[in-house]
Amino acid sequence: MADGQAHTPNLAHHFDSMDQQRESSSLGMWLFLAQEVMFFGGLFVAYGVYRFKYQEAFAVASNHLSVAWGAFNTVVLICSSLTMALAVRAAQLGDKKRIIRYLVATILLASLFLGVKGIEYTEKYHDQLVPGPTFQYEPDFDQYAVPVTAETAHPNFAGHVHLFYSFYFVMTGMHALHMVIGIGLMIWLIVKAQRDRFSREYYAPVEMTGLYWHFVDIVWIFLFPLVYLVWRH
């Protein structure tokens, strides 16, 4: 190389230095994440518009979700973000054993999250709240904490509850799909780590997967209060 720097096998030829290579992959990942923000953002905006339009029905529908499960999953996901951050830190320190250990912990926490999501989806299935032809919802206005009565309710109240659950399943479903992809990436990282592919100089895949995982965490940080915690007082 022109500057006389020792050539590391992990430095691709089109980069001047490891620094430049690292910054480039970070930038690429952040551009991808900005695009992901717009993807989930579109869903959040649509949800926001309808929640604003059909406030009572959305509040009633949200009250059918379990805050306990939602809060539990929030804690699980934050724990998984911590273990992921520690996996990246272990990679920075070149500690192969800890990389694998923290990645396994992250996968276990992610699986726990998905398991709870499975329980929640099953409950909704039994309550016939899954959108589609089997959706069945009879409003019971005496029961709601939300100030809505048979007289004041929109004639299509049940339809708006249906709409809420369409948003619920699409948004949490897309989030869950991102988690499944994340688990796949972590398994790939463990295999790579086992084969000694990472070093103190080169651990970009661990770091980029970390960024992705924290992004998935952030999506849930917004999903939980906005979807579960509507009109709980």
Binding site: W30, L31, L33, A34, V37, G41, G42, F44
Partner: peptide
């Protein structure tokens, strides 16, 4: 880049 993602989302919203 991080700020751009946020700003464009706020604009859309």
């Amino acid at each position: 880049t991080a700020a751009a993602g946020f700003i464009w989302f706020v604009l859309m919203f």
